[in-house]
């Protein structure tokens, strides 16, 4: 028994590849079966045809992708752009973009202040921004629904009772509500990488800029921002990528008026039983995310500032 173990040990020691293979086989198996496998199922289904009552017909077609962009006009039967679907894509991209922009505008000054002026409470401040990751996402969104509802939501009540407004304002079940929810959810995703890069910034460079006569705005524009470019790009990607595929926030806070790609895909599966169109939409969503990541990696490598940035 001992000699078998000994020989096995020696074999693995002499063949590093076999060692890695043995150690990694369970995880390779797991990922292949439950991450890669399902994604290939989606890819496969996106080329099939949906029959009536959710049945699947196994004849390969590009129709699902075509349907995403082109619709046949009901009267003239001529192909026209499918505005119904294109609007959903456009809305998702626009909402993710605006969310990222707001998160950057709020997150950068906050990260800057914590990293450079936080002093000895720096770690405590950043912990305050990491804490939300431990709390329930559904609960946090509900908390906002509780605040934003009209007419009995907290904010509306506060404004009405203080006499600032006469009529309740609609803040929920529209674009405003969805944007508030998204900024709220993704702000910590932006603050943390921004903080990481600002924290590593060499202070003496900032001092040198000031000593050489740079005004605060000039220093920010020509020194601080370029030097933290890696962090800004990481923060943008970490915000935009999950935001563009968001499902729960538009589902709960959009009131089925502000649908995004994620809701559309879920509807195709859960409500319409149209697996093939849903799969094609999923593939397009993954391609959008991949495109962003490829641009990010390509830019990052060219500037050589990505290394070590998380």
């Amino acid at each position: 028994m001992r000699s078998v173990r000994h020989r096995l040990g020696r074999f693995l020691w002499q063949h590093p590849g076999a060692k890695a293979g043995t150690a990694l086989s369970p995880i390779v198996f797991w990922i292949a079966l439950f991450i890669v496998g399902p994604l290939f199922v989606v890819l496969f289904y996106s080329f099939l045809t949906s029959g009536p009552f959710g049945s699947i017909q196994y004849n390969p077609t590009l129709e699902n992708y075509q349907k995403t962009f082109v619709a046949n006009d009901l009267r003239t039967n001529e192909p026209t752009p499918n505005w119904l679907y294109l609007n959903i894509f456009g809305r998702s991209l626009a909402l993710a973009f605006v969310t990222t922009l707001i998160c950057m505008l709020l997150g950068y000054p906050v990260a800057y202040w914590i990293a450079l002026r936080g002093g000895r409470y720096k770690n405590l401040w950043i912990a305050l921004f990491i804490m939300p990751f431990w709390t329930s996402y559904v609960v946090r969104i509900f908390a906002w629904m509780f605040l934003l509802r009209d007419p009995s939501g907290f904010i509306n009540q506060l404004l009405l009772q203080s006499g600032l407004i006469q009529e309740p304002v609609q803040l929920l079940y529209n674009v405003t509500g969805v944007l508030i929810g998204m900024v709220y959810t993704y702000l910590p995703f932006a603050v943390i990488p921004l903080y990481a890069s600002l924290e590593r910034l060499d202070r003496s460079v900032l001092e040198a800029a000031s000593d050489l006569g740079a005004r605060p705005w000039q220093r920010l524009r020509y020194v601080t921002l370029p030097l933290t470019r890696g962090g800004i790009m990481s923060a943008c990607v970490l915000t935009f990528v999950p935001a563009v595929g968001e499902y729960l926030i538009p589902d709960l806070m959009g009131g089925s008026k502000v649908n995004m790609i994620g809701n559309f895909i879920a509807d195709k599966f859960l409500r319409d039983q149209n697996w093939t169109l849903g799969s094609a939409m999923s593939v397009i969503l993954i391609l959008i995310v991949m495109a962003i990541l490829i641009i990010y990696l390509w830019r990052g490598h060219r500037h050589g500032i990505l290394e070590g940035d998380f």
């Binding site: 994604l39 199922v41 989606v42 595929g245 968001e246 499902y247 995310v289 990541l293």
Partner: peptide, 10 residues
């Protein structure tokens, strides 16, 4: 980075 909806549905 794959959207959660897509992972869940797949």
């Amino acid at each position: 980075y794959v959207p959660e909806v897509v992972l869940g549905i797949s």
